[in-house]
Design a binder for these strands. Structure first.
Length: 195
DNA sequence: TCTACGATCTTT
DNA sequence: AAGATCGTAGAT
C-alpha cells in the first residue's frame, strides 16, 4: 500500500477528514481501516484544544500537517489525531476503525471484546495500536512506527455532531463535523449519525 | 503545590 | 447512572 504524501494533509481540514475515511493506519503487524473521524477546526473552534492557546500538550497540533497528535483523555485513553488543514492548530480525531491485519495483536492488547466493539471508540483505537503520547509529533508519511496509507473510500458518508462535546459554544457543539463510513458496522454511536 | 476536569469506557 | 483514573492546565 502506498503511503499518503504530506501534501494530502495540507488541505482544508473537513475535506481531509472525509477523505481519511477508508485509508489505513499501520503500526507493525496491525493495520486498521479508518471508518469514523471527527474534524477539529483550530483556534476558532471552541471544542478544539488549540482554542485555549499553545500548551506543552498540544504543541504537535501547531506544527506541520501529516503528523500525529496523541493525548491522554480521562487519565487512561490514548487519543490519536492527525494534524491537517491549511492553517495551524487543526486536526482530525480517529474514532473508529475496522481491522485489516494483525487481529491477534489487537485482541492481545484488548482482550474480551468481539465485533465492532473491538475498535469502536477513540480509546480503543489507541489501545489496539499500542499508542502513547510519545507518538505525538511523529510524521505519518515517513518510515516512523506509525504510518498512514491508501485504502478504499466508502460509498456513502454519514455525518453527525462530535461526541462528548458539550461545554463548547453551542455553534461548535452543533457543528456536523463527525464523519463515518455509512455502510460499515465498525462505527461508534451509530444511532446519532444521519445520511 | 493544589484542584478541577476531560474529544472515554466499563460496570451497575 | 456512576465510577475509574491521571495528565494537563490554571490557580495559589
Amino acid at each position: 500500500m502506498t503511503l499518503l504524501p504530506q501534501s494530502f494533509y495540507a488541505r482544508e481540514v473537513v475535506q481531509v477528514a472525509r477523505e481519511l475515511l477508508g485509508m489505513q493506519i499501520r503500526r507493525g503487524p496491525v493495520t486498521l481501516r479508518i471508518t469514523e473521524v471527527e474534524a477539529y477546526l483550530g483556534p476558532q473552534d471552541s471544542a478544539c484544544h488549540t482554542s485555549k492557546g499553545r500548551t506543552p500538550r498540544n504543541q504537535a497540533m501547531w506544527g506541520p500537517p501529516g503528523h500525529a497528535y496523541v493525548y491522554v483523555c480521562y487519565g487512561l485513553h490514548q487519543m490519536l489525531n492527525v494534524v491537517a488543514g491549511t492553517e495551524p492548530g487543526s486536526a482530525i480525531l480517529i474514532r473508529a476503525c475496522e481491522p485489516v491485519a494483525g487481529l491477534a495483536w489487537i485482541r492481545r492488547r484488548r482482550g474480551g471484546l468481539e465485533g465492532p466493539a473491538l475498535l469502536a471508540g477513540p480509546g480503543r483505537i489507541g489501545q489496539a495500536l499500542g499508542l502513547s503520547t510519545r507518538f505525538s509529533g511523529k510524521p505519518l508519511f515517513g518510515t516512523d512506527a506509525l504510518q498512514l496509507q491508501g485504502g478504499h473510500a466508502p460509498n456513502r458518508i454519514a455525518v453527525g455532531r462530535r461526541v462528548g462535546i458539550d461545554t463548547a459554544r453551542p455553534k461548535d457543539v452543533r457543528a456536523l463535523l463527525r464523519f463515518a463510513d455509512a455502510d460499515s458496522p465498525w462505527v461508534s454511536h451509530r444511532g446519532k449519525l444521519r445520511a
